[in-house]
Amino acid sequence: MKDSLRFVKRGLLSALPWALALPAAVWAVLRLAGWDTWYPMAQLMAFTPYVAAGSLVPLAVLLVWRRWTAAAVAGVAALALVAVVAPRFLADGDALAGARGQALRVMSANVLVGSAGPDTLVALVREHRVDVLALQEVSPDYLAAADAAGMRDELPFRVDYAVPGVEGSAVLSRHPLRDDGVRVNPGGFRQARAEVSVPGGGSVLVESAHPLAPWADFVTPLWARGFDDQPRATPDGPVRVLLGDFNATLDHHLLRELIDSGYRDAAEVLGRGLTGTWGPYDGNMIPPVTLDRVLADRRVGVRDFRVLDLPGSDHRPVYAELVLP
């Protein structure tokens, strides 16, 4: 009996170092390989920054314990995870931000089926002198309430595809615009599109992004297809700005591929890419993740980026001051 217990104890002690090292190693492989379009990994991948920070703990334990082989595996995994996350809080030193081009102040807000306070949203628009506002989950009643609070005085031009429920979308502008139609993603989420005429800055294509969230097994393929349909950057054509609730983070390869088409993420350019924009909400202890963002083509400078507060919504608005070429 004692021999059996000794054997079991020896086996557990041999397995424990690998139990500490392998979770981060597996996560790193999935992240680097882009194997994230299956449920629930599509959801879990959003928490990679927390995994990167947590991967240092088993590494420290294994080093103190002197389990060198397992520590080496844990070290490589931690290094890989930190390497993909760290650039988000390292500013790029954007030379385009100091250019003399026309400034364009943009903001995106998911108003949670009209639950966010319209008065607060209008106050944010005034405070930051927003030129273009992209809205998601916006209903006709919410737009009417925002107009009653003064929104139309600030942003009189609009492309309005608001509907009751979560599918509504709109682009509101201080400058004249042309209705460029609506993109309907798999699952029904709408994306209002507009061509905004900016005085002294030409025209800018603006779209309010909102792919379906990968909240269950059967909708995850629809989420992936939604990214296939997102407009690629046009760095050799019209200036394009894509902003909204992307329901993805920089750890999802679908979003990275979209950015690699010629966009720049305004938050990452200024080293503010780890500020959470979604969660926790409704009493859930979900760590914040970064789902909302402003993407502009690589000719556009980024002078400012901020994550704001909008009580009543589970998302925080994002604001950027861009410099048009």
Results as ranks from 00 to 15, higher is better:
V241G: 11
V241P: 03
D131Y: 06
V184Q: 11
G75C: 10
S108M: 11
T37I: 02
W215N: 11
H210C: 00
P140G: 11
D94R: 08
S173D: 13
H253F: 01
W68A: 00
V76A: 15
P221R: 10
A149H: 12
H128S: 09
G301N: 02
S169Q: 12
D292M: 09
R158S: 15
S55I: 09
A99D: 10
V196R: 11
I286S: 10
F157Y: 15
R126E: 14
V132N: 11
A24N: 05
L22Y: 04
W65S: 02
R272D: 14
L112Y: 14
R298K: 05
D160A: 12
L205F: 14
G283V: 05
V84L: 08
V241H: 06
V84K: 02
A86Q: 06
D314Q: 12
T220W: 06
L135M: 14
L242K: 03
H210K: 01
L172Q: 08
D179Q: 11
G93C: 05
A192D: 11
P49Q: 04
Q43I: 14
A194D: 12
G101C: 06
D245T: 02
E154F: 01
G271Y: 09
N284S: 12
A209Y: 00
V122E: 02
L59N: 01
T275P: 00
V184A: 11
S55G: 02
P164K: 12
L254W: 01
G200Y: 02
L81A: 09
A109H: 04
Y263F: 13
P325S: 00
R10T: 11
W38F: 14
L56K: 04
W223S: 02
L291T: 07
W223F: 10
A134L: 13
Q230D: 05
P238W: 07
P211C: 04
P186F: 10
V85D: 02
P235N: 01
P211A: 03
D260K: 04
A194T: 08
V76F: 07
W68R: 13
A78T: 15
Y142Q: 15
S203D: 15
A28S: 02
L274K: 01
V302W: 06
G301P: 00
P164M: 06
F246Q: 03
H252C: 01
D141R: 15
S261I: 00
P211W: 06
L79D: 05
S4F: 14
F89Y: 13
G271D: 12
R66T: 04
R6Q: 08
V163K: 14
A77G: 08
R306L: 12
V196T: 07
G276I: 01
A91V: 01
V57W: 13
L250G: 15
V196Y: 08
E207C: 03
L22P: 03
A33S: 11
A320G: 07
L96K: 15
M1T: 10
A146D: 08
L104C: 04
M45D: 09
A24P: 08
